[in-house]
């Protein structure tokens, strides 16, 4: 990050500051070094947190970073869960509600979150995040598929899915 930032700063300084080149150069050098120290310290703190968490994950335990990531991504799974409850409430007044698909859509985010949690258990924080995102993608696609299939089942014969099975 610092390497990519430094040439950009130099390029912006050089065209404007041609007459008095030396004082800005010194200022820029000190500013760059202090920035670099600050960013290194920042990187150290972040990488320490990530490595602490990775060490805990390697033992099959959860660091605070892992728990935070699980909660943040868990909110999206919880949203899908509540939408499924909302759909069940909406359908409950209907005589031909596709209960099988509605209940599958209710269980889906719970099951996928559990699977994603288990798959990511011994991975580092980036692996965990990737698995949770992948789980959300599966929840999104399968929820739509279940809704489409549920609609098709509800509107095709007039029978509920439970009666058809």
């Amino acid at each position: 990050m610092t390497d990519t930032g430094v040439p950009g700063e130099d390029r912006s300084v050089v065209p404007g500051a041609v007459p008095n080149a030396e004082p800005p150069a010194v200022d820029a050098a000190t500013a760059q070094s202090s920035q670099r120290h600050a960013s290194e310290r920042h990187d150290d703190a972040v990488s320490d947190a990530i490595q602490d968490d990775a060490r805990a994950s390697a033992r099959g335990k959860l660091g605070w970073l892992s728990i935070t990531v699980a909660i943040v991504f868990g909110l999206f799974y919880v949203y899908a869960f509540f939408v499924a409850i909302s759909d069940i409430v909406d359908w409950s007044i209907s005589s031909n509600a596709p209960w099988g698909f509605l209940i599958a859509a209710l269980l889906l985010p719970v099951v996928i979150f559990a699977v994603a949690f288990w798959v990511g258990l011994r991975r580092n924080i980036f692996g965990k995040a990737l698995v949770f995102i992948l789980g959300l993608v599966v929840v999104a696609a399968l929820t739509i598929s279940l809704n489409v299939a549920g609609d098709a089942a509800a509107y095709s014969g007039g029978d509920t899915l439970a009666q058809q099975l």
Partner: peptide, 19 residues
């Protein structure tokens, strides 16, 4: 297997859908 686009395969029926 999981990500089959059923929304494309199943013909659109009724007005219901996902939220």
């Amino acid at each position: 297997v999981l990500l089959v686009p059923w929304v494309f395969i199943v013909p659109p029926i009724g007005s219901g859908g996902f939220n």
